Simulated scan of single mutants.
Amino acid sequence: MVDIIHRVGIAASADEVYSALTTNEGLAKWWTTDTTGAGNVGSIIKFRFDGGGPDFEVAELQPDSVVRWKHSGEMPGPWMGTEVSFHLSRGDNQTYVLFSHSNWKEPSDFMGHCSTKWAVFLLSLKEALEKGEGKPFPNDIHIDHDE
Rank of each mutant, 00 (worst) to 15 (best):
F47L: 11
R68M: 10
M75L: 14
P54Q: 10
V66R: 11
F49Y: 12
T35A: 14
S65E: 09
A38W: 03
W30V: 08
S85T: 05
G53L: 06
D55C: 09
T35S: 10
V58A: 07
L61N: 11
N93C: 12
R68Q: 09
S43L: 00
E60I: 04
V97Y: 08
V67A: 10
D34K: 15
H87S: 10
G81W: 01
W31S: 04
V67Q: 00
W31T: 01
G73E: 03
S100K: 10
H101N: 02
G77A: 14
D55L: 09
G51S: 09
E74W: 02
K29F: 04
M80K: 08
G37P: 01
P63E: 06
K29T: 11
L88Q: 07
I45P: 00
H101P: 00
V58K: 02
T35E: 02
F49S: 11
I45Q: 01
D55K: 12
I44W: 00
Y96P: 00
N40S: 13
D64W: 03
P63T: 08
S89D: 05
F49H: 06
H71T: 03
M75E: 13
E83Q: 12
W79P: 03
D50Q: 12
K29A: 15
Q94K: 08
G73H: 04
G52C: 09
N40P: 01
G51H: 07
F99H: 01
G81V: 01
V66N: 05
L88T: 11
W30L: 03
H101R: 02
W79R: 03
F99S: 04
P54F: 11
F49K: 13
W69Q: 04
S43T: 03
E74K: 15
T33M: 14
W69I: 04
E57A: 05
N93R: 15
V67F: 11
H71N: 15
W30A: 13
Y96H: 12
D92H: 13
P78D: 12
D55G: 11
P78W: 05
D55T: 10
G52M: 12
S65F: 04
F49G: 12
K29Q: 13
D34H: 09
G53A: 08
E74N: 15
T33A: 15
E74M: 11
E83S: 12
K29E: 07
F47N: 11
G42S: 05
I45R: 03
V66L: 12
F56V: 08
F99G: 06
E60Y: 03
M80P: 00
A28S: 14
V97H: 13
F47H: 15
S72E: 04
